[in-house]
């Protein structure tokens, strides 16, 4: 979680810089000049509106938490439902955000079945979000099967991290 927090802040900072069109300015800031001042200046020069900043924060929160599954299962756990309920609230509050749900599997299953299972996992999250009031047209699903593990050791601790849904919002 800590990793995602830091990653999120980094992404937000990058987003602020890119949106403000000041990436070159930052990189060309003379030694000793304040990077914070440059970034702040970009915002002050019309980079991000409050609504955009809110949206960026919502995107960060939506992407922050993954949900996890048992082996050969696409059933949502109680914890997953809570996480998805929070995401549904953020999506409803920010109707311009679109979401891609990625379904992933651990390495133990066979490739083709895992591709189908990954789809079912992504679809389970999508169905929950739609039932929670999010427009289905805003949500896409994609299965990566076992092709994109976050952990590559062959043990249950690692496998359990790979049986997951990830959320890409934009």
């Amino acid at each position: 979680m800590k990793r995602f927090g830091l990653l999120g802040v980094a992404l937000l900072a990058m987003g602020l810089m890119v949106a403000g069109g000041c990436a070159k300015k930052v990189s060309s800031t003379p030694a000793g000049a304040s990077a914070t001042a440059s970034t702040g200046g970009a915002g002050a020069q019309g980079g991000l509106s409050e609504a955009e900043r809110q949206k960026m924060m919502a995107i960060e929160k939506i992407q922050a938490n993954r949900i996890y599954f048992a082996f050969d299962s696409s059933e949502l756990t109680q914890e997953s439902r809570q996480i998805l309920t929070e995401k549904a609230g953020l999506l409803k509050a920010n109707p311009s955000i679109k979401l891609v749900v990625e379904g992933h599997c651990d390495e133990r299953g066979t490739n083709e079945y895992n591709m189908a299972l990954g789809e079912r996992r992504a679809r389970a999250a999508k169905d929950f979000l739609v039932l929670s009031g999010v427009d289905a047209g805003r949500i896409q699903t994609i299965s990566y099967g076992e092709e994109r593990p976050v952990c590559t050791e062959s043990n249950e601790a690692c496998w359990s991290k790979n049986r997951r849904d990830e959320f890409r919002a934009q």
Partner: peptide, 24 residues
């Protein structure tokens, strides 16, 4: 959204698993 395990039939057509209705 998903294309899985294409295979040729005996008469040369292609069969494939597609997820169009919530499950492949």
């Amino acid at each position: 959204s998903t294309v899985i395990s294409p295979a040729f039939t005996a008469r040369g057509t292609i069969a494939v698993a597609l997820d169009m209705g919530g499950s492949p």
